[in-house]
Design a protein around this nucleic acid. Structure first.
Ligand SMILES: [Zn+2]
Ligand SMILES: [Zn+2]
Ligand SMILES: [Zn+2]
Ligand SMILES: [Zn+2]
Lengths: 136, 136
DNA sequence: TACGATTTGACAATGATTCTCACTCTGAGA
DNA sequence: TCTCAGAGTGAGAATCATTGTCAAATCGTA
């Protein structure tokens, strides 16, 4: 019994959004992705950018976090659970892993009887190329 | 030379906001604080609630974090750097400290040449009183 | 009590995100 | 290749937390 599942392929718009994230490297908001696409001549509606980014996030293909002012920013990341070391000046991001932290959070939560534990952890700083050079 | 500095005392509104946070215990948004105050018969403008919460946060007297949908939530906490174990069902919050995590984040950042390092870390889960009792 | 400075709050403005819905595109089937 | 139902798109409206505005209320000091 062949399950009839339409062979969906990413649309032009979806590819454009994903590609833009890939080449950006840093965390970017939906608004800025939309702006960059427009600059690059790509025609993608704002609503579609939002939808695509959400879909990618749900699929675990991009990481999401919130800026200080609550804006959602997305980044194409390596698969698997990890955290980020982000330059608050230029946005350059390094993916980091910390097995010790993972076990620590789970242990702390367990000690207090919490279940279904998740966590968020981000590190912010000023990267080497932004140090000294008061770029801004 | 007596420095003429007015003896500022927290206004009725500011006290009301702070008190509401104290008695709540959990993280609460500006909107919900405003609503609770209104219910309690206190008369405090929404703008004032926002201003007061920001001031308290700037003064380090309350902690702020962002919910998944980007809303800012505040909580009256013990002074000093710490993190939170939050029940995503009832909002009950436990303050936790992890010296090992502190040194880890700083070390990781240093290894990559980042300076002026800060970090955010929150743990989410389901607390004991919300486990089993499928209370929504 | 009078006065300048601070605070307040109703309301407007902002801005990110979501919703609507008519239109377009796609792919399976004929 | 032709058709059609369903998925995807996008312009614009709607939502909603947050911030800005500014005249009126309040406070502290002299
Ligand atoms: Zn990542
Ligand atoms: Zn982790
Ligand atoms: Zn706290
Ligand atoms: Zn810490």
């Amino acid at each position: 019994m062949t399950t009839r599942r339409p062979t969906r392929r990413p649309t032009r718009q979806q590819q454009a959004v994903a590609a833009m994230l890939e080449q950006t490297g840093a965390f970017a908001s939906a608004q800025s992705v939309h702006a960059r696409l427009r600059e690059a001549g790509e025609t993608v509606g704002l609503a579609t950018v939002y939808r695509t980014l959400q879909a990618l996030a749900d699929a675990g293909e991009v990481d999401v976090l919130r800026t200080d002012d609550g804006e959602a920013v997305y980044r194409a990341c390596e698969p698997g659970h990890h955290h980020h070391l982000v330059c608050r000046s230029c946005g350059r991001t390094v993916e980091v892993e910390g097995p010790a932290v993972e076990t620590w959070t789970d242990r702390v939560a367990a000690e207090h009887g919490f279940t279904e534990v998740t966590h968020t952890l981000e590190i912010f700083g000023t990267c080497t190329s932004c140090t000294g050079t008061h770029s801004r």
